[in-house]
């Protein structure tokens, strides 16, 4: 039971880390990033491939975040000057292209077979519950550090500019700032967080395949921040917790009613996510913890 709770805790915190990146990008800056999972995948594969070459995990985790952030650079360069909806489509296309590349380049990523047998964090402790707990604590520290960083960024002069970009981009341009350069940095930081989340994911699951990085992951994260409340750290936590409750809960329902095959459960999950997205966007766009004074 403790093992199960720790496992859930780890998965929740990995998703919180993903959601924090999106909170900075969409909640604070207004970037509609529909390709978050692409950066998550880049982080996971970067760390996995480095670790298999014998690179210490500390370095591979940092490299995962750095490489994901760097890969956001070209994406942002070509798309950040475009309108919001074009940016959304381009990022969605980017994440699909990442998935195609990791499925096709067998020499590097072993293609659809995926990469098994990745080392876990804290294998030195001897595995089992203590190692899992150590992973959980590390993740919690990373999440706290990231949340603090996002708050610090938002409360800085830089943060005032990005919030101004979200609320009125023309006004920011009129004040002589270049919104694209601010957005680019925000995109890179959010991508970096997603990359680190990917590294934690890869070394927790220990087996990665391209199918784990489909667009649905991006929209899970979107659903979490919309339910919780856009732009709020507390909303990120609450939304992710609710999302996990739903995803895990649907597994329990299947245990209770074994007549429902897994493929049907996947369809039901997809439908519930879709309808929840529609309902929240329509009736409660600020989410459960959202700012009650803004639209």
């Amino acid at each position: 039971m403790e093992g199960y709770l720790v496992a859930i805790g780890i998965v929740v915190l990995i998703n919180v880390l993903l959601a924090l990146g999106l909170t900075l990008q969409y909640g604070r800056t207004g970037l509609i990033n529909f390709g978050h999972v692409g950066f998550f995948a880049i982080g996971a594969y970067t760390s996995a491939l480095l670790a298999l070459q014998g690179v210490p995990l500390v370095i591979s985790f940092v490299a995962a975040g750095a490489f994901a952030a760097v890969s956001a650079w070209p994406v942002g360069m070509v798309s950040l000057r475009l309108r919001d909806d074009y940016f959304a489509i381009v990022t969605l296309g980017f994440s699909e292209t990442v998935r195609i590349v990791i499925s096709s380049e067998k020499w590097l990523t072993n293609g659809m077979q995926g990469i098994p047998g990745l080392p876990r964090l804290y294998e030195g402790i001897g595995g089992g519950l203590p190692a899992q707990l150590a992973v959980l604590v590390t993740l919690a520290l990373v999440v706290i550090a990231s949340a603090t960083m996002i708050q610090r960024i938002t409360n800085s002069p830089f943060g005032r500019v990005i919030e101004a970009i979200r609320d009125n981009e023309e006004a920011v341009t009129a004040l002589g700032k270049n919104p694209a350069s601010f957005k680019l940095r925000v995109l890179a930081v959010g991508a970096g967080l997603a990359g680190v989340a990917g590294a934690f994911y890869a070394h927790y699951i220990t087996f990665i395949v391209p199918d784990q990085f489909g667009p649905i992951v991006t929209f899970y994260v979107w659903m979490a921040i919309i339910i919780g409340g856009v732009g709020r750290i507390s909303g990120t936590l609450v939304g992710t917790a609710i999302l996990m409750l739903f995803l895990e809960g649907s597994r329990f329902i299947r245990d209770l009613i074994p007549a429902i095959p897994e493929v049907e459960m996947a369809s039901i999950r997809l439908g519930v996510i879709g309808i929840a997205l529609i309902l929240f966007v329509t009736y409660r766009p600020q989410g459960l913890m959202g700012d009650y004074t803004q639209r």
Binding site: G271, I273, I275, V281
Partner: peptide, 27 residues
């Protein structure tokens, strides 16, 4: 409403339709 609202809602509509097909016709 905002660009995001319509985009995200259209994603939701797509998911709902796909789920409907998955349940009705299988995979």
């Amino acid at each position: 409403r905002s660009v995001m609202a319509l985009l995200l809602a259209s994603i939701g509509v797509g998911f709902a339709i796909r789920a409907f097909h998955g349940l009705l016709y299988g995979h």
